[in-house]
Design a protein around this nucleic acid. Structure first.
Length: 525
RNA sequence: GGCGGCAUGGUGUAAUUGGUUAACACGCUGCCCUCUCAAGGCAGAGAGUUCGGGUUCGAUCCCCGAUGCCGCUACCA
């Protein structure tokens, strides 16, 4: 018996040849936020399942009761749904192989443990922590693999039974067979571990709680998982798991170990590198399709070697596990932003408006969405459309629209670049001529504005940058921004809208700016 | 220390699986557009494939070794 390379390969072959639908799972621990690494694992599982018309299921690995929290479980599911990664079997939807929460499967595990014990595939280990520590210390000293000596392997069944019955604490270990442990990895090929480098793994702690490596294996087998797609931090665990499959006489699934996602310093990506949780990306206004597209690209490339933008549907068609790279990838925020800009441009105006609104409401720039008039909706839509191409994330929108919301453009004079532009005779002449016209007309249209600027140009001989920049600074507080044709109506219309933070009209802006500007420039001269 | 994995411009991926000048995208630089910024369009710089051997007529690709990084080495997951 035993599953050598050939039988594993045969297994794979049969699966590939048969029409058996693959079944894959995403099995997170609810001990924290879903982060990009896990999300990418979930995505690859989902894509693989959907590409082959198979099943994608969700299982919660909450055997670590200390760290597991229900709120993280809820958050996890919310994040997955937001990404568009739905599942057909899981803790809340149920399914034929439930329950899907490991904490609810404890009976199943103990039944299986009995079986292993009865078959002599596993044994009780009475070694104390102190003994094990000593063994380990010695192994290090002798430059040998740190593996359990197997001291308790030799205890006969009867004695073992008796000592356990007498209340002596014991863990349960698997007997690792004396043969190399091999498995086929769809992204790395054949992987082999010598059996004498693998310790007899603990299956059940002396507390009676089974350990991760054991329960995943039992669950994956019972849930009929055909392909285990997970992070490569599990690669060294896999031989132990293979041994568990063998001990039960179960067929070993296909494995695919995905490389780690690194930060720009080549360290494992973490909070230190900035936002890494899915919810933080959502909060900053990254579109889910941008994130899934980006994550797909982190370790995979399309067959044509060129196309980079894919919707989830397109990814489903194109995605092949065989094309996944085995080397770690560095997370690049710039590229994520590029993709987000791409999808922001593709999104419908209605959707953008819905998504953008809360960022402004939170800053008290807009009323609650439910109170919005059609005129306000229209105006805001125009405003957002104007600056959308220049933002990486929705979160940047309020700042990018400060040209209309800014309450005090006079502070712009403090900026050295602005001051240089303003502290000239020509700037003063332009501003005075402009103010004169605004005060006479009270309101401004783009057509009027154009006319006035032409008049000022003719009468002062000032043109280009020297003509426009002072006006721009006076109006918006910045020497750069959108074209006046768009800017003028946005400000004027905005000033007539009832807003929690009213917008100043052109006239108000000119008056406020002129008064402070005149006094400050007098002082300078 | 032991075991395993990984290595192509700054970054992510390609390279018909051993065949010419190593491709695409992000980013960067410049130009065009323009009052300005952004967007958009165009152009350009940037790697000889971690290093050293070997196999071969020929290695990014196969083999060996070194180095570096990552993971596992728990009665964590």
């Amino acid at each position: 018996m035993g599953y050598n390379t050939e039988s594993t390969a045969t297994c794979y072959h049969q699966l590939a040849m048969s029409n058996q639908k693959p079944r894959v799972r995403f099995a997170p621990s609810p001990t924290g936020q879903l982060h990009v690494g896990n999300a990418r694992t979930a995505l690859y599982n989902w894509l693989f399942a959907h590409h082959h018309g198979g099943d994608f299921l969700l299982r919660i690995e909450d055997t670590d009761v200390e760290r597991s929290e229900i709120r993280y479980e809820d958050q996890l599911m919310e994040d997955l749904r937001w990404l568009g990664l739905n599942w057909t079997e899981g803790p809340e939807v149920g399914g034929p192989h439930g329950p899907y929460r490991q904490s609810e499967r404890l009976d199943i595990y103990s039944q299986h443990t009995e079986r292993l014990l009865d078959d002599g595939k596993a044994y009780r280990c009475f070694c104390t922590t102190a003994e094990l520590d000593a063994e380990r210390a010695q192994a290090i000293r002798e430059h040998k693999p740190q593996i359990y000596s197997g001291k308790c392997r030799a205890i006969d069944a009867e004695t073992s039974q008796r000592r356990a019955a007498a209340g002596e604490p014991s863990a349960i270990r698997l007997r690792i067979p004396d043969a190399p442990l091999r498995f086929h990895d769809m992204v790395r090929g054949e992987v082999e571990f010598a059996s004498d480098t693998i310790s007899d793994p603990i299956l059940v702690r002396s507390s009676g709680v089974p350990v991760y490596n054991y329960v995943v294996t039992v669950d994956d087998a019972l849930m009929k998982i055909t392909h285990v797609i997970r992070g490569d931090d599990h690669i060294s665990n896999t031989p132990k798991q293979v041994a568990i499959y063998q001990a039960f006489g179960w067929s070993v699934p296909q494995f695919a170990h995905l490389s780690t996602i690194l930060g720009s310093d080549r360290e494992r990506l973490s909070k230190r590198h900035g936002a890494t949780s899915i919810s933080s990306f959502r909060e900053m206004g990254i579109l889910p399709e941008a994130l899934t597209n980006y994550l797909a690209l982190l370790g995979w490339g399309a067959e044509d070697g060129k196309t980079e933008t894919f919707t989830l549907d397109e990814l489903t068609r194109e995605f092949k596990l065989e094309r996944v790279t085995s080397s770690p990838a560095i997370f690049d925020f710039d590229k994520l932003h590029w993709l987000n800009r791409h999808y922001l441009k593709l999104a419908t105006p209605e959707r953008i408006l819905d998504l953008a609104w809360p960022y402004f409401a939170a800053k008290n720039l807009l009323p609650p969405r439910s109170n919005a008039s059609d005129a306000l909706l229209q105006w805001f839509g125009n405003l957002v459309a104007l600056v959308l191409p220049s933002v990486d994330t929705l979160q940047q929108l309020p700042e990018k629209t400060s040209f209309v919301f800014a309450r005090d453009t006079t502070t712009a004079q403090a900026d050295p670049e602005n001051a240089a532009l303003l502290n000239t005779d020509s700037a003063r002449r332009v501003l005075q001529a402009f103010a004169l016209r605004v005060r006479a007309a009270a309101t401004v249209t783009p057509e009027q504005f154009k006319l006035w600027m032409n008049e000022i140009k003719a009468e002062t001989g000032i043109k280009g940058k020297d003509l426009f920049h002072p006006v721009r600074i006076a109006l918006t507080g910045a020497h750069s921004g959108p074209e006046f044709d768009k800017l003028i109506p946005l400000i004027e219309e905005g000033s007539r809208l009832p807003l929690p933070t009213p917008i100043f009209s052109i006239l108000q802006r000119v008056n406020r700016f002129q008064s402070s500007f005149d006094s400050s420039s007098v002082a300078e001269v």
